[in-house]
Design a protein around this nucleic acid. Structure first.
Lengths: 171, 171
DNA sequence: TTGGAAAGTCAACAAGGCTGACATAAACTG
DNA sequence: CAGTTTATGTCAGCCTTGTTGACTTTCCAA
C-alpha cells in the first residue's frame, strides 16, 4: 500500500509529489478503463437508433449551446467538416436537429435540437449523468474536486477554452 | 464560484453531495476534453509509424503483462478477436511483437514485445506519462487521489478487475 | 475415439475518421 | 464593382478499427 501511492514531502514550503512510473501507469489505465465505462451507457442507447458516438457528441454540444454554428461545432469537436457534415446530415434528415440559415450572416447555419432531438439528448445525458453522479457519490466531495482539477490540467490549452467557454468567465 | 461547485452538507454523520445537472455536465465534458488531451501525444507518435490507438493499446498491455495470451488481451481490450487479430498481425509482421505458440496448450499464443516493440512502447508511454505527471504536479496530491478514486468508480465492475489485476491482490 | 469447446485466422462489411477537389452564396476589401 | 475571403456543403476515395460469419487446429471429456 505504501509502495503504491504517491508520496508527499514538504520541503521549502512546497509540497512535492514523487511519482513512480508504475503509479503513472495506473493513472493511465484508470483513464482508459474509466472512459470505457463513461461511454458504455450512451453507446447502448445509441445502438437502438443506429447512431454512434459522433452523433452523441454533436447532439450534446448543440444542446449545450443552441444556435451554435457548424464552424463553432467543428472547432469544439476537432474533426473535419466532411466528417461532421455526414453526421449532421443524418440528424437533420431524421428530424433530430434543425439547421437554420443565419439572419445576420446568411452563410452561417445555426443548429438547434428539435423536440425529438431534445428527447434523445435527455435520454443520453441522463444515463451519463447517472453514472457520473454514482461515481461522485461513492468517491466523496474532495475526490470530485480533485478529479475535475486533474482533468482540467490534462486538457490541451485550446480545449480548456471550449470547456470553460460557457460559464461566467471573460470573453 | 459558489454556484459552480458541489455543495457538501453534513447530516446524520454523513456528508451528502448536492450535484446540479450543470455540475454533472461539466464533469462529463471534462472527461471528453481530457481524454482528447490524454491521447493526443501518443497519437502523434503513432502517426509516424502508420499505427493507430488500437496498436497502442495492444502494445501497452503486452508490455504490462509479457506472455499474455490473445484471449486475455481480448477481455482486457473489450474488442472482438478478429479486430485484435488484425492489429496483432501487423505488429508481428513489423517485428514489434513476438507470438509464441503455447507449450502447455498449443492453441494459445503468448505475446511478447521485441526490442523494437519495447522501444516504441517506451516512446509512447513516456509521452503519456509526461502529460500525466504534469497534470498531477499542477493539481497536487489530494487532487490526484480524488482523480483516481472517481475514475475507479466510473469503471464497469468487470474492468475494475483488469485494472487491479496486476498488483498484490488475491487470485 | 469422437464430438464439442476453445483459440486463433481469413474474408467481407460498416462507421467514422481523413485528404483533396470543387460549388455556392455571402461578406468583405480595395 | 471586381476580386478575394469566409462559411458551408458535397463528391470521391482512402484508412483504421470496429463488427459478423465461416473455418482450422487443438484440446479435453464422455
Amino acid at each position: 500500500m505504501a509502495d503504491r501511492n504517491a508520496t508527499t514531502v514538504m520541503g521549502r514550503g512546497e509540497s512535492l509529489l514523487f511519482l513512480t512510473d508504475d503509479q503513472l501507469r495506473r493513472g493511465i489505465e484508470a483513464m482508459f478503463f474509466a472512459y470505457r465505462g463513461f461511454t458504455a451507457d450512451p453507446d447502448r442507447i445509441l445502438q437502438d437508433y443506429g447512431y454512434g458516438r459522433a452523433h452523441h457528441r454533436a447532439i450534446h454540444f448543440i444542446n449545450r449551446t443552441p444556435g451554435t454554428t457548424v464552424n463553432n461545432l467543428l472547432s469544439i469537436l476537432g474533426v473535419t467538416k466532411q466528417s461532421l457534415n455526414r453526421v449532421l446530415r443524418t440528424l437533420v434528415e431524421d428530424d433530430l436537429v434543425e439547421s437554420r440559415v443565419g439572419t445576420r450572416d446568411k452563410r452561417e447555419r445555426h443548429l438547434f435540437l428539435t423536440p425529438k432531438g431534445a428527447a434523445l439528448e435527455r435520454a443520453l445525458s441522463e444515463a451519463q449523468r447517472n453514472r457520473m453522479r454514482d461515481a461522485y457519490r461513492a468517491a466523496g466531495p474532495e475526490a470530485v474536486a480533485g478529479f475535475r482539477t486533474v482533468l482540467e490540467q490534462m486538457m490541451n490549452q485550446e480545449m480548456r477554452r471550449h470547456y470553460l467557454d460557457d460559464g461566467d468567465g471573460p470573453r
